[in-house]
Simulated assay, not measured.
Amino acid sequence: MLYAMLAYHVEAEVTSWTPEEDAALMSELLAVHERLNAKKVLGPAARLGSTAEARTLRGPGAGMVIDGPFAETKEQLLGLYVLNCANEQEAIAIARDLRRANPSAVYEIRPIRLYLPGEALPETAQEGDKG
């Protein structure tokens, strides 16, 4: 089963880190990534750009482009992972491992299904899916 692991953090805190502090955290996270790669469960991962550079398209018709994500939250979505886990418990265990490396982050675990017009991949197919 595929899971999205969404990493939330207080953006102002993350941007306040010195390059050395950021590198130390990334070193800890890369150790977790290496373990996940060895188990062949880690898919794409990304550190998102700043919310100040984000744009949101919303509204009817062609929509309107507005600055940034427009949500009143203290934490922002700053990164994501795609994981191929046997079950939810494995995904939660991975979130705990990531959290040990980055204890002030919040991780949202959400099942995902790839959408490929015309066919479902075996790891995302649900009983009764026809693609």
Results as ranks from 00 to 15, higher is better:
Ala24Thr: 12
Asp67Cys: 00
Met64Trp: 01
Met64Leu: 12
Glu53Gln: 14
Leu83Asp: 02
Ala125Tyr: 06
Phe70Pro: 00
Ala54Leu: 04
Leu29Ala: 04
Leu80His: 09
Arg96Cys: 12
Ala71Thr: 15
Gly59Asn: 00
Glu123Ile: 06
Met1His: 06
Val106Glu: 12
Tyr8Trp: 14
Pro111Val: 04
Leu80Gln: 02
Asn37Glu: 07
Cys85Gly: 04
Ala105Phe: 11
Trp17Phe: 12
Ala45His: 12
Gly128Pro: 12
Ala4Met: 15
Ala62Lys: 09
Asn102Pro: 00
Gly68Cys: 05
Asp22Tyr: 13
Arg55Leu: 15
Glu108Phe: 09
Thr51Phe: 05
Tyr81Asn: 11
Ile92Gly: 00
Tyr81Met: 06
Gly43Val: 05
Tyr81Leu: 11
Ile92Asn: 03
Glu21Thr: 06
Leu29Asp: 05
Asp97Lys: 01
Ala38Arg: 13
Ala125Ile: 08
Lys40Tyr: 00
Ser50Lys: 10
Glu90Thr: 11
Leu36Trp: 10
Gly63Trp: 04
Gly43Glu: 08
Leu2Trp: 09
Ala23Ser: 15
Pro60Arg: 11
Tyr8Arg: 09
Pro122Glu: 08
Gly79Asn: 07
Ala95Glu: 02
Val82Asn: 03
Val82Ser: 07
Gly49Glu: 15
Glu119Ala: 09
Tyr115Thr: 09
His33Asn: 15
Cys85Leu: 05
His33Gly: 04
Glu119Ser: 05
Thr73Ala: 15
